[in-house]
Design a protein around this nucleic acid. Sequence first.
DNA 1: ATGAAAGCGCTAACAA
DNA 2: TTGTTAGCGCTTTCAT
Lengths: 320, 320
Amino acid sequence: MSQSTVSLVLSGKASGRVAAATADLVRAAADELGYQPNAAARTLKSGASRTIGLVVPDITNPVFGHVLRGAQSAATAAGYTVVLVDADGDGTGGEASVRALRQTFVDGLLVFAIAPPEAALAPGGPPVVLMDMPDGDLPTVTLDLKGGVHAAMEHLLGLGHERIAHLRADIAEPTFAARAAAWARALHGAGLDAGEDLVARCAFTHTAARAAGNTLLARDPRPTAVLCDDDLLAAGLLLAARDRGLTVPGDLSVVGFDDMPLAELLTPPLTTVRFDAQALGGRAVDVVLAHIRGDEDAPRRAWIETSLVVRESTGPLPRP
Amino acid sequence: MSQSTVSLVLSGKASGRVAAATADLVRAAADELGYQPNAAARTLKSGASRTIGLVVPDITNPVFGHVLRGAQSAATAAGYTVVLVDADGDGTGGEASVRALRQTFVDGLLVFAIAPPEAALAPGGPPVVLMDMPDGDLPTVTLDLKGGVHAAMEHLLGLGHERIAHLRADIAEPTFAARAAAWARALHGAGLDAGEDLVARCAFTHTAARAAGNTLLARDPRPTAVLCDDDLLAAGLLLAARDRGLTVPGDLSVVGFDDMPLAELLTPPLTTVRFDAQALGGRAVDVVLAHIRGDEDAPRRAWIETSLVVRESTGPLPRP
DNA sequence: ATGAAAGCGCTAACAA
DNA sequence: TTGTTAGCGCTTTCAT
């Protein structure tokens, strides 16, 4: 029996070209021998690896774990495999890994919220889609950050708050810039000032947030509510409030971002902006896949909704 | 200029075989053209992909994120890439992904604390090392769970506790069996009984732990301390204690496991057993690499130490 | 309905 | 020191 017959059968192109009996024979033999087609040879010949790469800034963050899951299940359904790169994991901001990936012949690349490694953009490469990072040229899947922040601010404003501060991650990424802009817009929309006295910045850890929070809460007049760029920062701020003998939500309302698992476990449970990270991953896969196939109408923009989860860290303005 | 010359130069085997001037020329040209050797062809020819696969049960758990990082940096240093598979991510317990990986020609496979997918063990496959899962045949890297539990129990015993319960993850994995055995041993060692009345079981979520905790804490006599299989379960138990008006550590001491980021953020901050997840990942890579190279003295067993981090969720036995 | 043969891009043994 | 050549295992076209 010849190679080509086997190839035809095992790659499911046998219908109408190979006798059913022969096909069954082939499958039985393959099964018995535990035969697995060699992916390298297949890739070499066909020029496609049926693999897509996903670059995330920090896989240690559960949010990105969910993104990976969503991506993995969408990819598996389409017969693709996803390969994860943690940009911090290799000590080169992902450059080394992305280079390795491209060599490896990924058919597509998903880059989440970090300056895309140069290597990802080099010409001649596979289609790239950016996640949570608006861009003029590349296709993107973005979160409705504005909507999420807006909902949070409406909630706070509705509770009577006016001095609503913003605890920012001190990281120059569009995702954080978008949060800041939406915060300021909401304040302006309510006829309020979005001054620097309402802004605090810190590194992306709860320890840094605690320190920055202590400074922020020492200001006079003190903010009565704080919107935080992430749940981790909100957790640090909760600690700072406790440091200063402030009660949440009695003296201070706190809103987080991401709805990480810990949000529910904090004291008090955190009001936070949630988005469906798994859907984000799945959607991004759908988009690259369309570009890989070369679809005429492959989407260039996709959005993932956000929503506000109200728990116990927000309450009415304290009456002095 | 011939293919072989270029190949020699670019794979760093030029010394003494290619003129320095030619080599420079090749490199310059490669650089200018942005030439990347085709990994599929290289793999096909050489039979090695310089890629190792890592299978984890739940990438959403920060612990596994750290494992991946450790693995990734050790691998990068050795010129390898690591490919992650989340066993839950593809809806087939990792079978589909592992099969894909093997097709992809991983040179080695790391499997963390889940029944290794059948596909991983099929004969003719690459070397496999198991993490946190003792096994007779395969090489393993295991945590010193006994040591960790022992330290926690000594701590509790030293505080005067005698009714030390065990809140267990209801999952049949060796890692949890080891914790249970060590818990019982410590109790016996102190002349105490390790009866079923001190045991509670629940699914691996804080909600389940909260429910199980409520039941456990309603027993008479009530345990004065609880060892939990994971920080997430401990977080659920903290909630249960609060449900019942119990104070921690005043009325109840709680010990977690893993030292997840949230441990520090809970109220009160959690006493917990820590291990260096990053080191675990790195060590596992070192071990597979040795097996891949076919080293005579490739290690079959490696251990990662654990330690007890004492925070504020444990305290002296309540005086009735 | 099946088989023969070419070639994907690389490495390595060998020849010049 | 450089070039020629033979595959690695597969897919696919073309002949049978």
